[in-house]
Design a protein around this nucleic acid. Structure first.
Lengths: 346, 346
DNA sequence: GTTCAGTGGGAAAACGTTTTCCCAATCGGG
DNA sequence: CCCGATTGGGAAAACGTTTTCCCACTGAAC
């Protein structure tokens, strides 16, 4: 006791622990803790007021380490994103962050670069941090991912379904339906000579989008030619699009529409056509509708995913720990390139 | 003791604490801790091996809360970014993350949306998290920022200097010099009828860039007309650029070059010109050279900041707690728009 | 045969919370 | 007037680390 009060003399406005608050309010630390955590049944209004005043005066905030140690869980929510350079993922992260903050949770954002080893590294670290939940924004299969599922930490798959099995909470759009929408839209516009470029990955999102597009064109009686479907191994999505487009150009194919399973792929492909200076470049359509498309890619139509809605869905999935909630958010085909929009939205 | 060993029976492969490791290796927890932290002087090679084996077998990783509590500091490094939708900031974050991870540190990324209240909220939270350091990626003035400087948590200012005073470690480019470079480049190209668009903020970066550009043109005998310098209050950078360009167009001004103090502003401005469908739109040059410029903005020249280098500089600034390290990284004028690049770099 | 220095390692305190008991006082009903 | 329930609040344990002492042992020098 004497020791503690001596410490107080030394640190006048420094860190400040729950002890300082208790002493100032003339109560025990138990009472302070209860007030902080809103346990009203155990404190008289007068006491609550005194404690609040002391907290205010000392600008006190509970140290998270103490909490985490006792409660065996922290206020951190890990978001492991496959590629933060993708503006769409960045937008989802932003939405998640806002929603989490509103819950008093703190987002830790990590970039796995779509690499299993890095994803494992972060999974380990976030387990050590006793993260409240782990959100996988486009997960990849990895050993640690399998192990984590046997633990109790909530796991939430966003955009891509669980690559290790059918279980797991999921948030995303109906990728197959979106693919079919693209085909339907193309047929309506009379664009029947289409090419399709996708990443050579086995993510559920890519797979479903490809399947939807192919099925849609086939159902309309205009199945895509095999030679018009490309998935080169060329690095990131930008390079994939660029390389695929170059091959198409070299092959002499002249599609009237190029469907890309992500906007980044479309950016890369567009660049190839621009360089080739073809007289009448094909229409293009991508997926995600990255927020900057409206500014930078005025020729690119896209399936818009509702970024803003992901944050709330993630929060819901975390609290509603009820297993395996599947949230399918509505997508929307945004058409650009026929006539320029008169004014920028927003 | 009996209680503890009973618990072990229950949790065969669950969380696992240092106790489990110690028991398995037949040593005390003190020894385990020493091995983990590389204190070699206090353990025989044989013991070290046994402990390592046990750690491996149990897949043990120290809980960060215990550590943080004892050491009064965590392995978290907070990065408070003003706007993650800006690809340049996202790129800097990515670089920081990689460099920090290599040091065994974990980056917590937060988006302050350039709002003082939000920045304060995060500063508070990160203090409660006992963050090892706080990196301010484009800081804004705020009450808490002033208070944090009186504490011992290292504070590192990136891109923008400390808005509250002259002190503080800084990492960035020579913005004024870059502005002068832009003017020199313009004069060389014969572009003397320039407009300048900048954000109406008082950030050091914007201020220095503007000053450099103005000084450069003035020194060349072609000072910018007052009516050609715009800084409308219009929201984010995209809207600022769009609105400023609209005003220029409305005023009948026909600059041969538009200088923007950020690429985002340039994107917005470019869109206005595209909509207006002017026959010969002006050349444009921005700052930052966002990573996707080469793909999406082939007409935009830019002052490239070396994103990749920021991570290491940040790590260095954290460890070299020697006060007020100022790191000025080299910039580079990237010219685009005369002739398309034959091949995409990278 | 004693000391001395060094080596290897353990016991326990401390970090800041939350939470489980426990206790004292008050109050209402019989 | 006594008894039981309720209310308000405190003491202390527990959480998982790191780190400071402290101790036992081993050789080596005397």
């Amino acid at each position: 006791m004497a020791k503690v009060s001596a410490r107080e003399e030394i640190s006048p406005a420094e860190g400040g622990s729950i002890n300082d608050v208790a002493r100032r309010a003339g109560v025990s630390i138990a009472t302070v803790s209860r007030v902080i955590n809103g346990v009203t049944r155990k404190a008289s209004p007068a006491t609550v007021a005194r404690v609040r005043e002391a907290i205010e005066a000392l600008d006190y905030r509970p140290t998270s380490a103490g909490r985490a140690l006792r409660q065996k869980t922290s206020r951190l929510v890990a978001v492991l994103a496959a590629n933060l350079a993708n503006p769409a993922m960045a937008a989802i992260s932003a939405s998640a962050e806002a929603a989490l903050r509103e819950q008093g949770l703190v987002m830790v954002l990590c970039d796995t670069h779509d690499r299993p080893a890095l994803q494992d590294e972060y999974l380990r670290e976030m387990l050590a941090q006793q993260a409240r939940a782990i959100v996988l924004l486009a997960a990849v299969d990895s050993p640690m991912l399998r192990k984590v599922q046997t633990l109790k930490t909530p796991l939430i798959f966003v955009s891509r379904r669980n690559p290790t099995g059918p279980e797991g909470a999921f948030i995303g759009i109906d990728n197959r339906g979106a693919g079919e929408d693209v085909a339907r839209w193309a047929i309506e516009r009379g664009l029947r000579n289409a090419a399709l470029i996708h990443a050579p990955s086995f993510s559920s999102a890519t797979r479903d989008r490809v399947a939807g597009v192919l099925a849609g064109f086939a159902a309309a009686g205009s199945p895509l030619l095999r030679s018009m479907v490309l998935a080169p191994e060329a690095g990131d999505h930008l390079m994939i699009g660029f390389e695929a487009a170059r091959r198409l150009l070299a092959s002499g194919a002249r599609p009237d529409l190029v469907v890309c399973t992500s906007d980044l792929i479309a950016f890369g492909a567009a660049r190839a056509w621009r360089e080739a200076a073809v007289a009448a470049p094909p229409r293009m359509i991508g997926f995600d509708d990255s927020p900057m498309n409206r500014w930078l890619a005025p020729e690119l139509s896209s399936i818009r995913i509702p970024y803003e809605a992901f944050g709330d869905a993630i929060v819901e999935a975390i609290s509603g720990a009820s297993e395996n909630v599947r949230t399918i958010l509505p997508h929307e085909l945004v058409e650009r390139g026929f006539t320029p929009e008169p004014n920028p939205p927003r």
